[in-house]
Measured scan of single mutants.
Amino acid sequence: GATAVSEWTEYKTADGKTLYYNNRTLESTWEKPQELK
């Protein structure tokens, strides 16, 4: 079967924080998503 690919993209901001963006739900979060833990 196909492996579930994470929908989350990780961005590094200018101040060194990490922003997570979900390509499916168009949601963005500063918290690390469950799927990435």
Rank of each mutant, 00 (worst) to 15 (best):
G1L: 14
G1T: 14
G1P: 13
G1M: 12
G1V: 12
G1Y: 12
G1Q: 13
G1N: 13
G1E: 14
G1S: 12
A2M: 14
A2P: 12
A2N: 13
A2V: 12
T3M: 12
T3F: 11
T3Q: 11
T3W: 11
T3I: 12
T3D: 13
T3Y: 07
A4G: 12
A4M: 13
A4F: 12
A4E: 14
A4P: 13
A4N: 13
A4L: 13
A4S: 14
V5K: 07
V5E: 11
V5G: 13
V5P: 14
V5M: 13
V5D: 11
V5L: 11
V5N: 14
V5A: 13
S6V: 08
S6I: 08
S6R: 08
S6P: 11
S6W: 10
E7S: 04
E7P: 05
E7M: 05
E7V: 08
E7Y: 07
E7T: 05
E7R: 02
E7F: 06
E7I: 07
W8L: 01
W8V: 01
W8R: 00
W8G: 01
W8M: 00
W8K: 01
W8H: 00
W8Q: 01
T9Q: 10
T9V: 14
T9K: 06
T9D: 04
T9R: 07
T9S: 10
T9Y: 09
T9G: 04
T9M: 11
T9H: 08
T9N: 05
E10Q: 08
E10P: 04
Y11E: 04
Y11N: 04
Y11S: 05
Y11A: 03
Y11H: 09
Y11Q: 07
Y11W: 09
K12Y: 10
K12L: 11
K12S: 07
K12A: 08
K12V: 12
K12W: 07
K12D: 04
T13Y: 10
T13M: 14
T13N: 08
T13L: 11
T13S: 09
T13V: 05
A14H: 12
A14P: 13
A14L: 10
A14M: 09
A14F: 07
A14D: 10
A14K: 11
D15L: 04
D15N: 09
D15T: 08
D15K: 03
D15P: 01
D15F: 04
D15R: 01
D15Q: 04
D15S: 10
G16W: 00
G16D: 03
G16K: 01
G16P: 00
G16I: 00
G16Y: 01
G16F: 00
K17Q: 10
K17S: 07
K17N: 07
T18N: 04
T18K: 05
T18M: 05
T18P: 03
T18E: 03
L19M: 13
L19V: 11
L19F: 15
L19W: 15
L19T: 04
L19N: 03
Y20D: 02
Y20M: 01
Y20F: 05
Y21F: 15
Y21K: 04
Y21L: 09
Y21E: 05
Y21S: 03
Y21D: 03
Y21Q: 06
N22S: 02
N22D: 03
N22W: 00
N22A: 00
N22R: 00
N23G: 04
N23T: 11
N23K: 09
N23S: 06
N23R: 06
N23W: 11
N23L: 06
N23P: 06
R24L: 15
R24N: 15
R24G: 10
T25A: 01
T25L: 03
T25Q: 01
T25W: 02
L26A: 12
L26M: 15
L26K: 15
L26P: 03
E27C: 00
E27K: 06
E27T: 06
E27P: 00
E27F: 04
E27Y: 04
E27D: 04
E27M: 08
E27L: 05
S28A: 10
S28F: 15
S28H: 11
S28P: 03
S28Y: 15
S28G: 05
T29G: 03
T29M: 05
T29V: 10
T29W: 04
T29D: 02
T29N: 03
T29Y: 07
T29S: 10
W30G: 05
W30I: 07
W30A: 10
E31T: 10
E31M: 07
E31G: 03
E31A: 06
K32E: 07
K32D: 04
K32V: 09
K32T: 09
K32P: 07
K32S: 04
P33T: 02
P33H: 02
P33L: 02
P33W: 01
P33S: 01
Q34L: 12
Q34F: 11
Q34M: 11
Q34K: 09
Q34W: 10
Q34N: 13
E35Q: 08
E35N: 09
E35L: 08
E35F: 06
E35D: 10
L36Y: 12
L36H: 08
L36A: 04
L36N: 06
L36E: 05
L36F: 12
K37A: 11
K37L: 15
